[in-house]
Write a protein that binds this DNA or RNA. Structure first.
Lengths: 232, 232
DNA sequence: GTCTATATGACGATAGAC
DNA sequence: GTCTATCGTCATATAGAC
């Protein structure tokens, strides 16, 4: 992430470490403010006020407000990527049905997004006029989509998704569904609990219809353990 | 919409008419600017600049910037409601299958949203810090949801949606799907043509899975007139 | 009623002293 | 690294000419 980082940079001297801590503090407070004022309502002056410094001092750490948004974008993308990666590992070793895996992954992904609405809006909508993420900040989002694709390829290889299904289309449809849940939940009922929102509870129903459409006619629901050649 | 309108107000004198024309012009230019700068990037000064007047003159027509956003919200809600109402009338008299009706209505709704991204973001996301629509501006959006619900109730009454389906849940799931398409299309490929966007083309597939899940087992596809007692 | 002229305070950002 | 001083732009408000 940090450009120019090489081997010796792994051991940071005190100044560098202090600098990184300050940067983290700035980002934490920025997230806090976005939660209160909206993503586009973030102001450099308000960050400085809460940190007990003057606004120009922040320009030592970030050359512009958009650079700050870019760091927030990268941070959010990294976090949600980590969530998806953990799901991928867990589900790759599970014997759950397609429907159950979709419910599991859907709840996990949507849960993080609803619990982190500021990051989610910044990542998936475009609420800040004039800000576009840099390719470096966007990169974890690309890795995340690749993970979802290889998860679906695995599901197909294991016979849970029909062999004639176009994986790209299935990924696209599942992405549409999850982003629809998030969009509706955040726009219409942002204050409901992450796990029990009125749209989050639609996940099982949506997972069922997806599994019925793309899954094999005989879902291997409680099928007794003759799984062969589990190549992950 | 305009409070205090009574019978004699139907015939407006020249001044009143001129005033309304100016208001429409302000809103048109505001939409234009939002399209270029983002919804939250709208500025009163820029509107005045393009109209060839000074910023304070705009406060004669709108008491605040948020009142302007409110008028834009009401206008967008009225327009999309009109789209849904037209679909409702057309489909109410059609003999199309559930799947075909969903594709038809989905394309219509999503098409308007993708063609009018500024209104869509203002209506369905919350991109403007400090702005919440007034109940009057929000009212067409409520009527729109009611229309969708009664459309689904009709579909159930006509036997296209299974009798045991909870209509509210079906409306919720369909709302999630359409808003997911819109969200993905606008966030990831906003410049693709409204009719041929890479997520808009997912509508048939999503409509098929929805119809398979909530529809009657024998979709009246070519409708041989005698709908036989739904063997399910 | 509608306009111009003008004032206020917040914002993002820069220059330069220490 | 942090500060003061300053710039230009913004939304907003008021006074007063026509």
């Amino acid at each position: 992430m940090l450009p120019g980082m090489t081997t010796e940079a792994v051991t940071l001297d005190r100044r560098q470490r202090r600098r990184l801590e300050t940067i983290e503090e700035v980002l934490d407070i920025a997230v806090e403010i976005m939660g209160e004022q909206g993503v586009a309502g973030l102001s450099v002056g308000e960050i400085a006020r809460r940190m007990g410094i003057r606004p120009p001092s922040l320009y030592v750490y970030f050359p512009s407000k958009n650079a700050l948004y870019d760091a927030l974008f990268a941070r959010g993308a990294e976090q949600i990527h980590a969530v998806v990666e953990a799901d991928w590992h867990r589900l790759g070793e599970s014997d759950l049905s397609l429907e159950q895996q979709l419910i599991d992954a859907g709840r996990s992904f949507v849960g993080w997004c609803v619990a982190n609405p500021s990051y989610t809006q910044l990542l998936f909508w475009r609420p800040v006029p004039g800000f576009t993420p840099t390719p470096e900040a966007y990169e974890p989002a690309i890795r995340m989509l690749a993970l979802t694709t290889s998860w679906f390829e695995q599901l197909q290889a294991r016979g849970l998704i029909r062999a004639d299904v176009d994986v790209a289309a299935a990924v696209r449809d599942w992405t549409v569904i999850t982003s629809g849940v998030i969009s509706q939940q955040l726009a219409n009922a942002p204050d409901e609990q992450p796990g029990s929102g009125r749209f989050v509870t639609a996940i099982p129903s949506l997972a069922a219809m997806f599994a019925k459409h793309y899954g094999t006619p005989t879902p291997s629901r409680s099928r007794g353990r003759a799984r062969h050649a589990d190549k992950r």
